[in-house]
Design a protein around this nucleic acid. Structure first.
Length: 293
DNA sequence: TTCCAGGGGTAGA
DNA sequence: TCTACCCATGGA
């Protein structure tokens, strides 16, 4: 191995699938994630130990391999990779439930149920806001501008502190997130001044409903955004119904449907309905966003 | 021009 | 709780 190159192996549970996790939704298309379709590796630049480090993540049976271009702390690196791939998410109960439902058995067989997420809740919140009321192409463009304009060396995702340090007019004109700019900059400012501890929410052992109320209190986060984020936080009892869900269900039903119809359709899956929706056969097989189109 | 996209905030009923 | 209207941006 070349000097400075570090390789770390992170144990993964037997019901984990790297490819299924990375492919679960569109996050791998948003900088600073770069998905290498040929090598099947996920590349990402992170700030670790106060230096920029590029991670190349791949996986074999029951283990995730992380190669870095510089030495860094193994514990912190493993923690970030674990969060990104939801390695600590227990899926036994979900897969057991899927095996009781004929149409869901494939979810368990393929080891689906984890979703790629960012190393921080802050980044996930920003990216969820960037998916609302816009096209996927614009979501990609917004994420790209965030990294290029405000990330360290134009390669890492800007921290809340880095974002808050940018004057709002400058931030807004460069990031071109429209009315979402005020939401993102406002959240960044609250994190930076210590009045909002987003990351701390993840270690408080909160109930799903308490967490949902807190997420809904964030500007720019409504029922759809909160359900997305709850899913990333391992709380799958809410369906992140959106225009894609409505269109797909309408196609199945042969008639126009509302959010209420989508929620009614998945309600029987109770505590698992958020995960069931995201991996439901007709959604999985026909999601343009998951395919990155 | 007008519409609308992986919605959300707000006011009024 | 529900509905209507507005919201920046950019592509069709």
């Amino acid at each position: 191995m070349r000097k400075g190159i570090m390789r770390l192996f992170v144990p993964a549970p037997s019901d984990f699938s790297f490819l299924e996790t990375v492919s679960a939704h569109g996050w791998r298309r948003l900088l600073p994630f770069v998905w290498n379709e040929d090598a099947l590796t996920l590349v990402r630049t992170e700030e670790l130990s106060e230096q920029l480090i590029t991670l190349t993540i791949s996986a074999a049976d029951d283990v995730v391999q992380v190669e870095t271009d510089r030495d860094c702390g193994e514990a912190e690196l493993a923690a970030r990779v674990s969060r990104m791939l939801q390695l600590d998410l227990p899926l036994t109960g979900f897969h057991a439930y899927c095996r009781t439902q004929p149409e869901l058995i494939g979810i368990a067989d393929c080891r689906r149920g984890r979703l790629l997420r960012s190393p921080t809740l802050w980044e996930d919140v920003v990216k969820v806001i960037a998916t609302t009321n816009t096209t996927w192409a614009q979501t990609i463009a917004m994420s790209t501008r965030l990294v290029k304009e405000f990330g360290r060396e134009g390669r890492a995702f800007p921290s809340a502190a880095e974002t808050a340090a940018v004057p709002f007019d400058d931030f807004s004109s460069k990031v071109r997130m429209g009315y979402r700019s005020a939401y993102v900059h406002g959240i960044a400012t609250r994190i930076a001044d210590g009045t909002l501890d987003l990351e701390g929410w993840q270690t408080e052992d909160l109930t799903a409903e308490t967490l949902r109320k807190r997420l809904l209190s964030l500007p720019g986060i409504g029922p759809y955004g909160a359900a997305c984020l709850l899913l990333y936080l391992g709380k799958p009892a809410h369906v992140n119904s959106d225009s894609v869900a409505r269109a797909l269900l309408a196609k199945e039903m042969g008639q126009s449907v509302t959010d209420k119809d989508v929620h009614a359709f998945f309600k029987p899956h109770s505590e698992w309905q958020g995960l069931v929706y995201n991996f439901y056969p007709w959604k999985w097989n026909s999601s343009p966003v998951r395919e990155g189109q």
